[in-house]
């Protein structure tokens, strides 16, 4: 029987995801505001404005409160000697196995928000696919990148 991967990403990921969701939601509120303003000027039907506001409210809740925590709870990873396993997804649960000998290179990536919270994402590349472990502690990400590239180097094999 296969166990689920065990390791979780940093809990600070929640904050980071919420911040980026807030930015996206703000933009969509501005767009909705413009739309409502235009509707008002051109005497459009009132119910469309109501509908827009309702949609915005619901998506604000989903994007900022619901999705980040679901996503965080779901995301697990494990780095073993011969393979890497990831589990992710909100509605669709996806589990991925990446044999260590197939890893071509590993990157750590850090956007402005991640940097503020001393987090970094690790991206694992095979010859055909790329897989992300988002929002790890900086030191942990660094450590992981070194570990994976060392393990991958041992198992050197050609495409």
């Amino acid at each position: 029987m296969i166990l689920e991967p065990q390791k979780r990403i940093s809990i600070k990921a929640l904050t980071v995801w919420r911040i980026s969701s807030v930015i996206k939601i703000l933009i969509s509120w501005i767009l909705a505001g413009v739309a409502i303003f235009l509707l008002h000027i051109f005497n459009g039907p009132f119910w469309i404005s109501l509908l827009l506001i309702a949609i915005e409210l619901i998506s604000t809740y989903i994007m900022i409160f619901l999705l980040p925590s679901l996503r965080w709870r779901r995301f697990r990873y494990d780095v073993r000697v011969e393979e890497i396993e990831l589990q992710e997804g909100i509605f669709i649960v996806k589990r991925t196995l990446i044999p260590m000998i197939r890893v071509q290179h590993v990157d750590t990536v850090q956007g402005p928000i991640l940097r503020k919270y001393q987090l970094a994402s690790v991206i694992i590349n095979t010859a055909a696919t790329a897989h992300e472990i988002p929002a790890l502690e900086e030191s942990e990400a660094e450590e992981l990148r070194r570990l994976i590239s060392n393990l991958a180097m041992v198992a050197d094999e050609d495409v």
Partner: peptide
């Protein structure tokens, strides 16, 4: 096989 994926909705 470079990677293998299983998905459940």
């Amino acid at each position: 096989i470079q990677s293998l994926e299983m998905r459940e909705s």
